[in-house]
């Protein structure tokens, strides 16, 4: 039986792990290779490493971080942050990533997903979708308003697309997995946006990694129940509140199959 995955996420800027709330207010959370080793040791099922600086100067540094991680890791590694084209993706894969996450560039030019899937295979292509809830805002009477919209450029820009429609289109074009982040919940510790997970799960047939808002093992269990195949978490691990192995023991107690 395929187990549910626990995926620690490292946001990296200029060679350091950082963590923010609602995509801003970054603070330092350690050395990325050291953190990656620790999460592997604890039973992390794979790692996601995002270059949140994503500038030209930061990129070279980031590739070296990935090379060092690959040397240390015997589990899969997804890399992303600022991937604009095939060449960026190829550089991340050559440095040691097994999968590449694309976000803004795919929204702006969806054919990128086709190109990536043709070149590297869809199992290698993760579409990262940052979804912001519109439901709570005052809807325009009579006008169709999506429940969630896609935000891009690290959450700073609304692009007016329906997040569910984009999830479906992206997987049709070439994404083999969806990294689904709730903009509203990211960093808030309020739990995942379960309705968002349920809605995307009903719409697409590819695996979903739920992201944004995890603080407790119950939050993770709820995300799995809503249809997530994997859960991404950052601060609960970075802040040493708990370990991946403790989380997995607790999930096992709740009857959820995990690799232990």
């Amino acid at each position: 039986m395929l187990t549910r995955r626990i995926i620690p996420c490292l946001d990296v800027a200029h060679g350091r792990v950082v963590k923010g709330i609602r995509f801003s207010g970054l603070r330092d959370a350690g050395d990325p290779v050291e953190r990656a080793r620790a999460y592997q040791q604890q039973g992390g099922d794979e790692l996601v490493v995002l270059d949140v600086a994503a500038t030209v100067e930061a990129r070279a540094h980031h590739l070296q971080v990935l090379r060092d991680m690959r040397h240390a890791l015997m589990i899969p590694l997804t890399a992303g942050g600022g991937v604009k084209g095939i060449d960026d993706a190829a550089a991340l894969l050559e440095a040691g990533a097994d999968k590449v996450a694309v976000n803004t560039a795919a929204v702006e030019r969806p054919e990128l997903l086709v190109e990536l899937a043709e070149r590297f295979g869809r199992q290698c292509v993760v579409v990262a979708i940052d979804a912001r809830r519109l439901k709570a805002d005052a809807p325009v009477p009579g006008a169709p308003v999506p429940d969630w919209e896609v935000v891009i450029r690290a959450g700073t820009t609304s692009c007016g697309r329906d997040a569910l429609e984009w999830a479906e289109e992206a997987t049709t074009l070439g994404a083999g997995e969806i990294l689904l982040t709730s903009w509203d919940r990211d960093g808030t510790r309020l739990g995942y946006d379960l309705e968002l997970i349920t809605a995307v799960h009903a719409r697409v047939g590819t695996p979903i990694i739920a992201s944004g808002g995890a603080a407790t093992v119950e939050h993770l269990a709820e995300a799995f129940a809503a249809g997530a195949d994997a859960v991404l978490a950052a601060s609960i691990f970075h802040d040493h509140e708990t370990t991946v192995s403790q989380i997995k023991d607790d999930l096992h107690q709740l009857g959820i199959e995990v690799r232990r």
Partner: peptide, 21 residues
């Protein structure tokens, strides 16, 4: 859900491998 992505139990027929994820 496709692709199958993640850790699955490997069960050998016979003892040529140990069983693990």
């Amino acid at each position: 859900r496709v692709p199958q992505l993640g850790w699955n139990r490997v069960e050998p027929a016979g003892d040529w491998l140990t069983s693990d994820y």
